[in-house]
Structures are given as structure tokens and as C-alpha cells.
Design a protein around this nucleic acid. Structure first.
Lengths: 160, 160
DNA sequence: ACCTATTATATCGCCTGCGATATAATAGGT
DNA sequence: ACCTATTATATCGCAGGCGATATAATAGGT
């Protein structure tokens, strides 16, 4: 036992790291025919579930900053999958909306999610359990950085 | 239920993605005083557990390719934390070994793992359970890409 | 010994991911 | 109305992450 002082937490981040990269590698060949990268797909997933979100809102969901999202979304815009328009109510906000092409891509991508679900090799209850633990973990990690938020709503994204 | 066709697998990769980034953000302020990035720390973790591994071996553990590891390890070398020497038995291999400074850093970083374990907000059994599921998931995702490996040892890293 | 296939690492270009910073718009206090 | 603080997005530089490719060393067949 060379490192008995760091058994659990360290290995956990290790596993999450490797699984995340493994997910990316499984998705890549499925997304390539659609002309999408994995993070771009995650942004589209967000928009398919609710269209017309602001950059900040999308970032809060994925844990990404505008410095990452702005160029990514501009590439989606260049591919004519989304449009970016300033919110007339608050000109600071940029509202990202799906184009027809962007919406149509959801059905083209539907088999992707089916493939992935199969590739996980997990049963439905296992997935539910895993998601629940990961959600808990994510909240705890955020609170650990920002402080447990003694009152008021916890900050969700980076630099919100 | 707007997207009842993609409930489980899609959200799962979403969660893994966000948790991985959250881990990185928790580690960053702890590793910054040590002059390490999060991936560099993961490579050092690998070497602390077993010194003198080849680039390929380190990559297999983390799921990384030489195209990612070579520059990263060169930065560790520039920081005088590791040395890179060709294996005399097989000149293709590069053996990465800890320097004295690299070894000493393990004790300096010991409190980091303690902080993280606390920040996860999970109980020990929960962590064990989570690790087990993630390990299973990682294997399944690899097999999904490479084929279920009908016989013989499954390929572990990317392009091994 | 020679020729070819494979293996291990390295290089390059592009897309993330993020800290630091900039810019513009809103909010709030006076 | 004015001044300042805050908020939302954008820009820049650097460190990953990876596909495609290059290079050098080993392995295997003839």
C-alpha cells in the first residue's frame, strides 16, 4: 500500500476522467457523419430539450463559461444549426435558437442516443442510480468550491 | 417529457461530462500552488503508484494518446518533476521516472486528496459503489468501440 | 540478410476548457 | 441625470484531447 492515504477520492476523479473521455470516443464516430463534435452535441441536446436559451443558461447546465461557449456556438452558427440574437429585453444576453436544420438534426441523431444507451452496458436501474449519485456529487463539488451556500440559491455555473 | 426517446444514455454522458469539469475546478486551486494542472496531477498520481512507466502504459491507465501525453510529460520534465529516458531493451519506448522533486511532491499533495474526499460529499460506501459502476461503464464503452473482444485481452487505451 | 508489418512515440492542426481581461448593458444609490 | 457596481458576453493565451500523419525501432516471414 504505497498510497493508503489517498484511496477513494483520488481514484474517483480518475474514473470520472477516464469515463468521460471514453464517452467522447464512443460518440465521435457517431457524431462525425452529422458534422458535430461531442461538446457541440451536448449543446444541441440542451437546445433540443428547450429552445431559445441564453449563452449563460446553456453554460450553467453544462458547467461551461462564455469563453468556451461563445466560439463553440459560433461554429454551430457557421454550420447554420443555430442563430444568435440579442435579447431585446436585455441587450447583454444572447439568445441561441435552433434553425430548421438544427431541429431536423435531432431526429437524425436519435439513433445515436440509442447506440450509446446500448454501449453503456448498464441496466436501466444502474443508470438511474449512477445519475443520482453523479448529480449529488456534482452539487457537492460545486458547494465545496463556492461554499455550502448558507442561504439563498447556490451559484450553479462557473463565474455566474 | 419532450425527449422521451433519449432519456437515459444521453443524460448520463451529460452528468459525467459536468462532474468531470467540476472535479477539475475543485482541484485547480489546490494544485495551483504546486504548479500543476489537473491532467498533470493525474499523470503524477499514476507515477506515484508505480514509478518508471512508459508513455503508453500511462496513457492506457488514463485513456490518453501519446499526442496528448508527450507534450504534457515534456512540461513535467521542464518542471523537473520527471525524466524521460529511452528503454535500453526497446528503444521505441520512453520510460517516465520521477525525480526527487517529483517524489517529494507526493507528500505536499497529500492534503489535496484529503480535501477532495471531503468535497465529494459522498460516504465511503457510495464512493466504492460509484467507482465500481464507473469501472464497469468504462469497460463497456471501450468494448462498444473496439468490439466485445471475442477472445484474448481487450485493447485498453486508444490506439494501443 | 532483406523486406514488410507492426509498434511506440512524436508532430501538427483543430476544437475544447479556463483564467484574465475587455466591452457593453443594466441596476442601484445619490 | 450621474456615477459606480454588477451582469452577460466576447477576446486572448495557454494547456489539454484527438485524428492524421511521420519517424524510428522491433518482429516476422522469406
Amino acid at each position: 500500500m504505497t498510497n493508503s492515504a489517498s484511496p477513494l477520492g483520488a481514484l474517483l476523479c480518475f474514473d470520472v476522467y477516464a469515463v468521460n473521455l471514453a464517452f467522447g470516443r464512443v460518440y465521435k464516430p457517431l457524431l462525425e457523419p452529422l458534422g458535430l463534435t461531442y461538446p457541440q452535441y451536448l449543446v444541441l441536446l440542451t437546445l433540443w430539450s428547450r429552445d431559445g436559451q441564453t449563452v449563460g443558461h446553456i453554460g450553467a447546465g453544462l458547467g461551461l463559461d462564455s469563453s468556451t461557449l461563445t466560439p463553440l456556438i459560433k461554429r454551430l452558427e457557421a454550420a447554420e444549426l443555430v442563430t444568435r440574437t440579442r435579447d431585446p429585453q436585455d441587450e447583454r444576453r444572447v439568445i441561441v435558437s435552433l434553425t430548421g436544420r438544427g431541429r431536423n438534426l435531432q431526429s437524425e441523431a436519435s439513433h445515436v442516443t440509442a447506440c450509446i444507451a446500448k454501449a453503456t452496458g448498464l441496466t436501466a436501474p444502474e443508470i438511474v442510480q449512477l445519475q443520482s449519485t453523479l448529480a449529488k456529487l456534482r452539487t457537492a463539488l460545486h458547494d465545496g468550491v463556492e461554499g455550502p451556500a448558507p442561504a439563498g440559491p447556490a451559484r450553479k455555473g462557473p463565474r455566474q
